[in-house]
């Protein structure tokens, strides 16, 4: 037992915690693989086809491993007219921004000998603001990819991406702000504990949840907001010229963003690692609650992808600026009012 205590003490050191925290990278990479597999299976169910079922048993469990090996040993092409550093930098920046988002997300609490330890690589009192800021970096990543390729499809995709992200960054920020108003803090841990005290914020501000959900989907670029990769218009969008593991990184970065985005939904609106309202945790460890909720959110994302057509790009920006923005302001006023009443 002393060793465990010693381990906890050692993890108090930020350097050690940072290095050990790189496990998180492995974990979210693994969850991204699981998510891609889930998406292929679940989308297959929606579309009445089996999905991968040959590689690695009857559930196709090793399909993504085969894909990864293939991508890893594929020739890497940089087009001759490309801006080479910018072209190479796109996926790397996208991946880094996903990592930097993951570092500030708390994944639950562990109880040990009466005291509770937070499962997070780092805690900061502005983590909500920080995550939002780092997420915005992925705009630059996609633009680098589009501009650097010197491909017309990519360029159109890059500009679409900018226009779309700009429209949704403000409502997203305001939705996070409304949560922060209620929780009186920008710290994820405080936000979760406030939800344990009051109620899940999805019940306190349903409008905010809808605004945040839509804006997040748009930010992640998933159907119905996948205009940058609209296959029938722009081939593969900003990543048209990417091959091999370069494309693999870009692809993975997208799913990493989706997973961290799902974590954000859970923390901000679904009570983080706390149990059900009125029922409590039901003897299930908080970490599992967290993972379970993230799973549900991801499944909803995949479900939406299977059920909706793509929205046109001008309608996307219209939705962001003309619908979500006013609503998010209304929601902010509502949240401030409720927060005053509650306190």
């Amino acid at each position: 037992m002393d060793y465990i205590q010693l381990a906890f003490d050692l993890l108090g050191n930020p350097w050690i915690r940072g290095v050990v925290g790189l496990i998180v990278v492995g974990v979210i990479f693994f969850s991204a693989i699981v998510m891609v597999w889930l998406e292929r299976k679940f989308l297959g169910d929606i579309q009445t086809r089996p999905g991968p079922n040959r590689v690695g048993g009857r559930f196709g469990l090793l399909q993504l491993v085969a894909d990864a090996i293939k991508l890893f040993t594929k020739e890497d092409i940089v087009p001759e007219n490309a801006d080479k550093p910018v072209h190479a930098g796109g996926p790397i920046v996208a991946l880094t921004s996903a990592f930097l988002m993951a570092v500030a997300v708390p994944y639950g609490v562990v109880s040990f000998e009466g005291s509770e330890y937070l499962l997070a690589v780092t805690t900061m009192d502005i983590s909500a603001l920080y995550v939002e800021a780092v997420a915005a970096v992925s705009i630059i990543a996609l633009f680098m990819a589009g501009w650097g390729s010197n491909n017309k499809y990519s360029l159109l995709g890059a500009f679409r991406n900018i226009a779309r992200m700009l429209g949704y960054e403000v409502p997203l920020g305001l939705a996070v702000l409304s949560v922060a108003v209620m929780a009186q803090s920008l710290d994820f841990v405080q936000i979760v504990s406030r939800q344990e005290q009051l109620a899940w914020f999805i019940f306190m501000q349903p409008l905010g949840f809808i605004v945040f959900g839509v804006a997040l989907l748009a930010d992640l670029g998933r159907i119905p907001f996948d205009q940058i990769e609209a296959e029938e218009e722009l081939i593969a969008g900003v990543f048209t010229e990417y091959s091999s593991m370069r494309w693999g990184f870009a692809f993975f970065a997208e799913y990493l963003h989706a997973i961290v985005g799902a974590c954000l939904v859970v923390i901000l609106f679904l009570g983080g690692w706390s149990g059900l309202p009125f029922l409590g945790t039901l003897f299930i460890p908080p970490v599992l609650w967290f993972v379970g909720k993230v799973f549900v959110v991801i499944m909803v994302m995949i479900w939406i992808r299977g059920a909706l057509p793509r929205v046109r790009i001008d309608q996307v920006t219209d939705l962001g600026w003309k619908v979500l923005f006013p609503y998010s302001l209304i929601n902010l006023v509502w949240a401030a009012a409720v927060a005053m009443v509650v306190s």
Binding site: G18, G21, L95, F99
Partner: peptide, 26 residues
Amino acid sequence: FIPVAIFLVFGFVMPVATMIIVKQIS
């Protein structure tokens, strides 16, 4: 912010290193 710095460095080193390996074996 020290872990953030570690992640930042890792986030730049890991893909670059991987790409070098990929270049070699592909």
